[in-house]
Each structure stands twice: as structure tokens, then as C-alpha cells.
Nucleic acid binder design. Structure first.
Lengths: 409, 409
DNA sequence: ACGCCTTATTTCATGACGTGATTTAACTCA
DNA sequence: TGAGTTAAATCACGTCATGAAATAAGGCGT
């Protein structure tokens, strides 16, 4: 285990960290603002900022009048102090994005994937190619990249060696980090895509400032990112957040996970379309679901519409029950609904979902929870992944940039 | 908000705290052991222990040979440095227990309650009388009591003023702390009974050492205590852990909470007996349930037994689904089942429950979770409540013993 | 232009703290 | 009795946060 707390030097690292977090999310701030926000004395803020400025992490930018006195100097993160890369390994494509420290996109690259064949090699090659492309397009040198965050579907086991168990991918204990390591020296941070997306919403979207929240993501499958004490809950082996396989109907519909009555078997996009049964236009699930929702929420009443209404009604009821379970168990201050299917449904039926959730939850915790939609759209996985190395920087635990030997025990 | 981190003095408090936690759960330890366990240098351990010994929190007790060298001096918590009181406000009685620091019982007092009438005044009077009694019986002066932990049924809202919302009690926003304050000056710590019981199991029972665990409690109702990062998760308004009202059957049995299909409506003792329907011997639920379980697990096959088997079978299936939901969502390393009904069922049917849970959970997180029974019996609520002031002592955040004015903001 | 006022930031002296190195303590064994 | 061994305490040093005091950087009035 790494040494962490104890010495007076760690104290400095901690203080530096709270200062950086404060600045990152509330910039620009004057030293005085920082003193107030962090509880540190002005003297300490002065010392720490001097250090940060000399390192180039923070820059002075402008100033602001102060009613007759010396103007406040505003501090900002230096967006060019380093760059981060986010990778979204999705069902149909790999997306690689290069960001500066403040998460402005500098370059992008997409690599299509065959939806029915996710060879590990393909994915690894795609990611490596993407890294090279965005670095070239963004005109950024690899040495100034803080790290690469990678959001993948399935369970990510964070052990001595990072292993990916991709249920829908047919991946079993794939040592993704090791495989990528052969092609790059950049620090790698691999995590579940739902978790990285949740972190994106937490940092920049509907979750800003929340200490306890659950971000529920509905696509073809159903997942969640659970935020406790302001950070993502990972559980014993980092697989926490598998919301989709909560049983909402004992003995109910068979789920692709092999169990029955799972939430996913009712509110996952595939399940919703399947329950509807009738053919829908469009080649892909997204178009089909949108059509179904249009039919079900339009004010007319043809035969097919009635059936659509029925399916959506049930979907809302099941989803409400699922959300209520989260509210009762976690008592979050916010529930945030996302994923492409979640957004499609939520945009039309959020009031109904809220009502269904209320019917299945206890009065007190429900009253303290707001139920909202994701604000960053369905493509925030890469953004969230890219926050992983930023998080390390803010915490002062970032790795050294170039290949450094690692000692165990 | 209180100042917390920042100064070099807080560092000392933190180090002192990790040292105390280590000692509390692994005593006796030598200074050398402590140095290794906490990561602090021997010099610091020496300094901190000197302070602790001079305060009387820690004592030297015995020594141990060291292969030819100076013997190691063993350190222990001083059990008499202070006392704590735990209160269990149950359905049928109030129990008050006085413990020393190491949780040895010094005195007990019980006050019966009318199960159908839980007047606030009755409860307050009972608690106050209990405090006086145990102090007298234990021959302990009030000034040496660190605090009183009180476990109550229902949701406890930890705000500027602690409010108790007792669903089954008919309590609505009862300012229990303020009411008790009229009769005692002791520091009070009020929490939900399921949470205090969970903490008892976490500290001294089946949960020892767990970082991520869920303690599920089944009695007449169903609750849970969720442990994340080694401590109880409370959520936004401290109502987290309401496991009983998770929907396991959309549109299912009506629950006393007003919703339908709740887990509690299937596996709560009352619900199980109700589903069985036939009359059972015994005046109380406990006897009745025990009889039902006997009938359902005996190797004969009379008509009534068949029905009992069916009811238990269903119960196990629902409970398994509920547990699976916890496993999928939290990825705990341990699930601990307790409560009087939970223990009755679990003692006979734990293998079946494990199997049912496995059927409804994902392979990977299930494989990492052990499902066990509580070890402290159903009466650990008071013990757990009494740990609340101990926790403060260990964290170095205990209040001053006698009435001290409180400044806001 | 000049000094005074106001406010922001830095500097300084001080007191705490943790730590490696060095001593001292407390035994065993020959 | 003295050498050997291990545990604990002490010491000198470096780091840190902080309140107080000093300094910087403007505005304003004259």
C-alpha cells in the first residue's frame, strides 16, 4: 500500500488538492476567494498558489476592482498545462477525443466497429490508432499528455492488472491495459463506460455539486453510476452500479443475463421494442424507439397507438419502480436519467416517470430527491473518461509522465 | 461548517485517530506493532502514545518477550477511561445498556412499551429513567459518560435539530433530542436502529473488517445498513438503507407503506405469515414464524407442510432477488442477514437463499460476495448505538463532557 | 501631481509536527 | 559481569500553516 497520510508533507498535498478542486470548478477565483472557499489562511493560499504558478498548473488572468483597494488578481487553471485523452469504446464505434485541462475538445477521431464482432485486437488497434491521430491533429506532443481515460462496456476489475469482463462483448478477463501498453507509454485509466459518463455528468452536467446521486443510463442495456460522498462508488471489485439486473418482477421476463424479471428486461431499449412486438420503421433501435415513443405520446388513438401507449405505460411503471428502489436505498439528493434511450423516454415522459417513482418510494426520501435528465447528451463517455487523469492531477497523485519503473509491495 | 483539514494540528488529530482505531480493534499492540499497522514512524507513535497515556485513554498492560531484547510493552485501550450508553427503542420495550469503552456491559435496564401505543412522552420518560438506572446500577458518574447512542425505528433526520420520523410509530418529525435534553446533559447521538445494529455487526460481528457490506435486517419490517468505505452510508438526509420498499414485483402485494410489490410485502415476518394464511400456534409472530419454518423444512409432507414449503420457497426466492439487487448495485464483499425473522429463516435456509441470490445476480459480483448471518443476535441495537460516542472518541471529535455553549456559522 | 485611504497579497516570526539518526532502556545469555 | 539484542525515547532538522505586520496596487480628493 502506498503511504498516504501521516507526514506534514501530505498535509501540503491535501491542501493543494482542495485548492485545485475549488479552482477547477469555480474559476476564475482570486486568492482571497480561495482562502474563503477552502478555509485555508491567506498566507497558505499565497504559498500554494506560488508553487502552482511556478509549475504552470495555474495562471494569473486578469484582475477585478475592489471598491477602492488593490484589485484582486484572478487565478485560472492553465488549460495548456497538459492534455488528456478520453476514449469511448461503444457498440458501434470507438471514439477518441483530445481535451485540454479545462475539457475543451482539441481533436477527435472515430473508428467504426462491427456491432456483432468486437475482437479485442480490433479495439486495441482502434484505440492506438486514435491516440496517434488525435495527437497529430491536435498538434500535441505525447509528453504533455497527462493520461488516457478509457470507458468500456462491461465490468472493469481494478486489480494489479486491469481486467475487462465485457458481457455483451464476449470479453472475459481481457487484460486491456497490458495489451495497450505494448503500443503506448501514456498513463492509462480504464473504467466502465457508465461510470465515466456518470462522472462527466457529475462534473459538468446535471450532477454538478451533488454529494449523493445516481446517474441511471438506459441504452440497449441499463446501467448506473452511483455517487456517494461526491465520488463514484466502485464497490469491492469495481463492478458496482449494475442497476439493470435488479429484479423488479420475480419470475418475469427472461433477461439476456440469464436471469428473469430484471429491470433491463423491461426498460432497456431492446426490451421495450420487443415488448411492443409490432414492426417499426428504421434500421436501428434508435429510430425505432423514437417512432414508438412518438406513436405512444401523440394525442391520437389508432390501434397501434393504443398498443404503444400500453408499452410506454408499462415502461414508465417499471422504470419508476427501479428509480424508487434507488431513492429508498441510497437517499440521493438527485437522480439523473440518461443514456440514449433514457433521454428519448425521459424527454417525453419525465413527469410520468417522476410520478411512478413517487408511487414506489417512501415519502421522506422521495421529497428530498430531484429527478432530472442528463445534460451532456449520450456522447459524454469519452469526456468522462478523460476526467480520470484530470482527477489525478487535482488530487496530486498523478503519475510521472514518462516510463518509470513500478515497485511492488 | 467546522474547520477540519488544513492545519498541522489536524494532522496530529488524524494520526492519533488512525492509531486509536488500530488499537481499538487489534489490542493489545506494542508501539512497534502500531508503527507498522499505521505507517507512522516509531518516533511519532511514541509521541502520540505518550499523549494518550497521559490522558488516560490508553494504558500499558503487560509486556512480551522479544527474543533476547527489551520486551515489547503492550498497549490497550483503558476500558474505564469513559463509559457509553446504548438505547434500543423497540416495538415492545426500551432497553438501556451501560458499557465501558471496550463494550463490556456494566448495567442494563428494560422498560416495556405497549406495542400499540408509542407515545413520545412514554419513550422519553423511559429513556431518561433508564439512564438514571444504569448509571446508578453501574456505579458510574454521569461526568464520565462519553455519550448516549439511541437507536430508534424509522427515519432519523440529522439536521440542526435531530428529527425522528417513525413510520410504524406514528411519529412525525419528533424532536427527540430536544425532548431528552430537558432531562439530561449527556451528549446524545440518535440514529436509526437498523443502522446502529449494522454498526454493531460491522464492529464486532459478521462484518468485522469489511469495507463494503450490506447488513439486511428482517423483522416485522425490512431494513438495511449500507457500509461503504468502512462506514455507514447515510445519504442526503440520512434515510438511506430502506431496503424493504424496493419493488420486487411490480403490481404485486400491497405493502403497509402504501405501495405495492415491496420486498417487505413478501419477506417481512408479517407478510410471510399473512401469505401462509393458516392459523399457527403462539401468541406472537416469533413463535408463529418458527413453527411455520419448522413445518416447511421438516422432511414430512402433510398438506399443511406442503403449503408451508410453498410459502418458504417463495420467501426465499423473493429474498434472493432482493439480495441479488444489493449485490449488483453495490458490489459488496459481504452481505449479512439479520433481524429476528432473518435469523430464523437464515438459520434453516441460508444455502437456498444463497442459491436464489445467485440466480438473480451477475456472475462476477456474486462470486466476490459472501452471504452470512449476523452473529450478535437480534439485540445488538443498543450495542451499536453505544458505539456512536465511541466512534467520536476514536476520531478525536468527541464533544466536551459538560454543557458547553454552541456557536453557529 | 500628491498624499491618504482601502483592499489584496506577501513576508516574517512562531509554534507544531513527523522523521531519521542516535541514545537510552530493558532484557537474555554466556 | 559484560556482550548482544531488541524496544522505545530523545534530539536535531526540515516542512508546514498561521496571525501579524509589511508591502503592493489601485482609487479619490485636493
Amino acid at each position: 500500500m502506498e503511504r498516504r497520510r501521516g507526514t506534514v508533507r501530505d498535509l501540503r498535498r491535501d491542501n493543494r488538492s482542495v485548492l485545485l478542486w475549488s479552482l477547477y470548478f469555480n474559476q476564475p477565483l482570486s486568492r482571497q476567494d480561495l482562502s474563503q472557499a477552502t478555509g485555508l489562511s491567506p498566507a497558505s493560499v499565497s504559498n500554494v498558489t506560488r508553487e502552482l504558478i511556478s509549475e504552470g498548473v495555474v495562471i494569473e488572468a486578469g484582475s477585478v476592482d475592489s471598491d477602492g483597494g488593490r484589485p484582486r488578481v484572478l487565478l485560472r487553471m492553465n488549460p495548456d498545462h497538459g492534455y488528456v485523452i478520453g476514449v469511448d469504446v461503444g457498440e458501434t464505434r470507438i471514439r477518441v477525443e483530445l481535451f485540454d485541462l479545462m475539457m475543451t475538445v482539441r481533436a477527435k477521431a472515430d473508428y467504426p466497429l462491427n456491432p456483432h464482432e468486437h475482437g479485442v485486437e480490433q479495439v486495441v488497434d482502434g484505440i492506438l490508432a486514435g491516440l496517434a491521430t488525435v495527437l497529430a491533429d491536435g498538434e500535441v506532443d505525447a509528453s504533455s499528455v497527462l493520461g488516457v481515460g478509457i470507458g468500456v462496456p462491461g465490468v472493469v476489475e481494478q486489480g494489479a492488472e486491469v481486467l475487462v469482463h465485457g458481457q455483451t462483448y464476449g470479453w472475459d478477463a481481457v487484460p486491456l491495459e497490458r495489451l495497450l501498453r505494448a503500443g503506448t507509454d501514456l498513463p492509462l485509466y480504464i473504467d466502465n463506460g457508465a461510470k465515466t459518463m456518470g462522472q462527466a455528468e457529475l462534473w459538468f452536467g446535471a450532477g454538478r455539486g451533488a454529494q449523493n446521486a445516481v446517474i441511471g443510463l438506459i441504452g440497449s442495456g441499463v446501467g448506473a453510476s452511483i455517487i456517494t460522498n461526491g465520488s463514484t462508488h466502485r464497490g469491492a471489485t469495481s463492478s458496482a452500479g449494475e442497476w439493470g439486473h435488479t429484479t423488479v418482477m420475480v419470475g418475469g421476463r427472461t433477461c439476456r443475463c440469464g436471469s428473469s424479471g430484471c429491470l433491463e428486461a423491461y426498460v432497456g431499449a431492446e426490451a421495450v421494442l420487443d415488448r411492443y412486438g409490432l414492426p417499426l420503421p428504421g434500421d436501428d433501435q434508435e429510430t425505432a424507439l423514437a417512432t414508438l415513443i412518438d406513436a405512444g405520446t401523440a394525442p391520437d388513438a389508432s390501434t397501434t397507438a393504443l398498443q404503444a401507449v400500453q408499452v410506454l405505460d408499462d415502461t414508465v411503471r417499471y422504470l419508476g419502480a427501479g428509480i424508487a428502489g434507488l431513492i429508498n436505498l441510497f437517499n440521493p439528493e438527485r437522480i439523473i436519467l440518461g443514456g440514449w434511450a433514457g433521454l428519448l423516454i425521459g424527454e417525453r415522459l419525465l413527469p410520468e416517470i417522476r410520478e411512478a417513482a413517487q408511487q414506489h418510494s417512501l415519502r421522506q426520501p422521495f421529497a428530498e430527491t430531484s429527478i432530472e435528465l442528463c445534460r451532456l447528451g449520450p456522447d459524454a463517455v469519452a469526456l468522462g473518461a478523460a476526467t480520470l487523469p484530470v482527477e489525478r492531477l487535482l488530487n496530486g497523485t498523478a503519475e510521472a509522465p514518462s516510463g518509470k519503473s513500478r515497485s511492488a509491495s
